[in-house]
Amino acid sequence: MDLPVMPPLEPMLAKAATNVPGEAGVWSYEPKWDGFRALVFRDGDDVVLQSRSGKELGRYFPELVESLRDELAPRCVLDGEVVVPREVDGRIRLDWESLSQRIHPAESRVTMLAEQTPAHFIGFDALATADRPLLGEPFRVRREALRELVTEKTWCHVTRTTEDPQLGTQWLTTFEGAGLDGVIAKRLDGRYLPGKREMVKVKHKRDADCVAIGYRVHKSGEGVGSILLGLYDEGGQLQMIGGAASFSVKDRIKLLAELEPLRDGDARDGDPSRWNSAADKRWIPVRPERVAEVAYDQMEGNGHSGRRFRHAVKFLRWRPDREPASCTFAQLDVPLNYDLSDVLES
Rank of each mutant, 00 (worst) to 15 (best):
E87W: 09
E87V: 15
E87Q: 14
V88F: 13
R91W: 08
R91I: 09
R91M: 10
I92R: 13
I92Q: 12
D95V: 06
D95N: 14
L99K: 04
S100Y: 06
Q101T: 05
Q101G: 09
H104P: 01
H104G: 00
H104D: 14
P105H: 08
A106N: 10
A106F: 08
A106H: 11
A106D: 13
E107R: 15
S108Y: 04
R109Y: 06
T111K: 15
M112E: 15
M112Q: 14
L113K: 02
A114W: 08
E115N: 09
P118A: 10
H120F: 12
F121A: 01
I122C: 10
I122N: 08
I122T: 05
G123P: 01
A126N: 07
L127T: 00
T129Q: 11
A130S: 11
D131P: 00
P133Y: 11
P133M: 14
L135E: 05
L135W: 05
G136V: 02
E137C: 08
F139I: 01
F139G: 01
R140M: 04
R142T: 03
A145P: 03
A145V: 11
L146C: 05
E148D: 13
E148W: 02
L149V: 06
V150M: 01
E152K: 10
T154R: 13
T154S: 11
W155K: 07
W155T: 05
V158A: 02
T162F: 01
T162W: 04
E163I: 03
E163V: 07
D164E: 06
P165T: 04
Q166K: 06
Q166D: 15
G168Y: 06
G168T: 05
T169Y: 05
Q170C: 07
L172F: 05
L172G: 02
L172K: 02
T173W: 13
T174A: 04
F175E: 15
F175I: 01
E176L: 14
G177Q: 10
A178E: 14
G179N: 04
G179C: 09
G179M: 08
D181C: 01
D181M: 08
A185V: 10
A185W: 09
K186F: 05
R187W: 06
L188Q: 13
G190Q: 12
R191I: 03
P194T: 00
P194L: 07
G195Y: 12
K196T: 00
R197F: 12
E198A: 08
M199G: 08
V200I: 13
V200W: 02
V200N: 03
V202D: 06
K203D: 09
K203Q: 12
K205T: 05
R206D: 09
R206K: 15
R206N: 15
D207L: 04
D207N: 11
C210M: 08
V211K: 02
V211P: 01
I213Q: 00
I213G: 00
G214F: 11
R216Q: 15
R216P: 00
R216C: 02
V217G: 00
V217P: 00
H218F: 00
H218G: 02
K219R: 10
S220I: 00
S220T: 14
G221Y: 11
E222R: 11
G223A: 01
G225R: 02
S226M: 03
I227F: 06
I227S: 04
